[in-house]
Design a protein around this nucleic acid. Sequence first.
DNA 1: CATGAATGAGGATTCATTCAT
DNA 2: AATGAATGAATCCTCATTCAT
Lengths: 188, 188, 188, 188
Amino acid sequence: MATNKREDILQAALLLFTERGFDATTVPMIADSAKVGAGTIYRYFENKEVLLNCLFQECVQRFFNTLKQGFPEFGTVRQQFHHIFYQMVHFAKREREAISFIDSHHNPRLLNEESQKMYNEFNDFMRDFLIKGQEQGIIYSLPPDVLIPIFYGALVKLIEITSAGVIEETDELFAGVEECCWNAIRVH
Amino acid sequence: MATNKREDILQAALLLFTERGFDATTVPMIADSAKVGAGTIYRYFENKEVLLNCLFQECVQRFFNTLKQGFPEFGTVRQQFHHIFYQMVHFAKREREAISFIDSHHNPRLLNEESQKMYNEFNDFMRDFLIKGQEQGIIYSLPPDVLIPIFYGALVKLIEITSAGVIEETDELFAGVEECCWNAIRVH
Amino acid sequence: MATNKREDILQAALLLFTERGFDATTVPMIADSAKVGAGTIYRYFENKEVLLNCLFQECVQRFFNTLKQGFPEFGTVRQQFHHIFYQMVHFAKREREAISFIDSHHNPRLLNEESQKMYNEFNDFMRDFLIKGQEQGIIYSLPPDVLIPIFYGALVKLIEITSAGVIEETDELFAGVEECCWNAIRVH
Amino acid sequence: MATNKREDILQAALLLFTERGFDATTVPMIADSAKVGAGTIYRYFENKEVLLNCLFQECVQRFFNTLKQGFPEFGTVRQQFHHIFYQMVHFAKREREAISFIDSHHNPRLLNEESQKMYNEFNDFMRDFLIKGQEQGIIYSLPPDVLIPIFYGALVKLIEITSAGVIEETDELFAGVEECCWNAIRVH
DNA sequence: CATGAATGAGGATTCATTCAT
DNA sequence: AATGAATGAATCCTCATTCAT
């Protein structure tokens, strides 16, 4: 087949890093899983850490793009929130592990500047959304860095639980969680 | 000196595991940090994995005890939630890293049965609280496994942010987050 | 180069185990002696103990094959004894250390079942030879387990002495020892 | 009790060294077995190697004394041989492990000069006996270093087998082995 | 004297990375 | 370009030895 080896490696690394963590994942493991030779990985990535950063950046990029795509710049705060939440869930359905991976590997010890910058941009996007909502008196007046984890962290765990098969994922479930999260951050 | 070396080792391990993760923490690192010889660690713990499990169990135990202590069994759901949230924050202030450590090392690959059992008991406590609240029509009808992360995950992140010094921790901040979390899980 | 690294490792281990014993031989010693990296040994053998057992089994196998090859099944007891003794000496000349190694590492603490089974088969071969000789009234009526060490042990020590260069090895010497050993076990 | 700790340590070391070998025996093992603290061993012996050499020398000393005691200096060669063999068996019955220990730890890597000297003296005693027998035309004309192992090695293995309980030790058995060994070394 | 907790040097083993094929 | 055998630095862990009590 004409599949791209680089993609195979990234996909294998994503699964293994998410499942076991960066340090507990060996390069031969990734090679086996991607069905390439161990040496091949070094044709595409300078070393294991670079591989991690490439993967991280691609995941954040795709996640961020999903959020930005069709964002209702001039819609209501509630509409914007729905967009963000809905797109996150959508993205998570397509790329099961990406969100958990991003969340668990968002660590200054492993990430280079570029990766951190990209993560921060993504964070800033959500922070801006919250700040504008607060200016309109709709979002609860807490530091955005505190509000973000409330709905973002909830979503990450939700994804992990549904991925593990503990709970069946239905539209009602996602709608319910969205409402909870919205209630968490809005002014009452 | 009357200092307990076992405690020194556990404390050093807690900091390092939380900061770097289990796999990226070497035994000599722990030994240096605890100011003991590397071999000494093996007088107290059979191996690195056993050390992790001892630490995990002690942390969960102390955390869980804090929650149970003075729990208003017959109070309102709101009072119970306040107790849980307040005790969690209180515990987090005393034992900065314990909660992050528990959260990031709750992993079947590393934990033995005893550790997992203890973690589950702690989880069941919160699940029971939510279920009773749902029976009274006060807590939103979503699976507890989905609701728990919403406020528990929020709290974990909150602790991490305040620990990192990004945001100053004030009573108002904690009260605000408590309100957000309560709004997230209650019926409107 | 076309040299087989596995063989190099086994050969180096044979010399070192024989010289120093299993426990006093370090893996880096073997690696240095075999002119391979320490890690390379683990590509061929799961661990040091497995290396020992592989080596042990190969040595016993080759030794046993030498004895069985051309064994005069229907010759006289004396002819059979000559065959055994002569082949042992012959084998010892080719594979200097193998016999000492087998003798000094025949230890249940270090050997796995497979190794012990193989050693027992080799022992049974000599036991059968003695029992048949006893049935013919030619071999002295002592338990074979007592007779075997008399000539086998003698041979092991003989090999060690000649290997050490204490005594020059001549055909007369071997013929003399053979006669001594034969006199030891035959009926007079 | 007033038992001598030094003796307890030596006795424990004898058993363990014989069973497991010097390198596989740890100092704490010896301490546990001797029911003393690990540090106590260092009050009596400078280090593990010194302990080995003390033990070796004491064993060789006692063994050698047993052989020399009542040696029929002016008896026949056969009488002398009987004395040696009989005393060896007698010694082995009293001090089960000593002979195996001496045999398996007679190794230049571990023994100091004093120990080797003592072992050589013991060897010389048997060599002299054989040479005198050869001068009288009674002992087979082979290098003594080759003859000694034939009966000494046989005896060592005999002791090991009877100690292991494989074969019951009777006077007939020992008499039979003595005859075999004598037949091995005498002129026919 | 006796102890055993503490140590750290040294050994077994793993794994990121290289390189000859 | 792709491989995977080979490597050795770095890890976990053991144990001879010391020393405060």
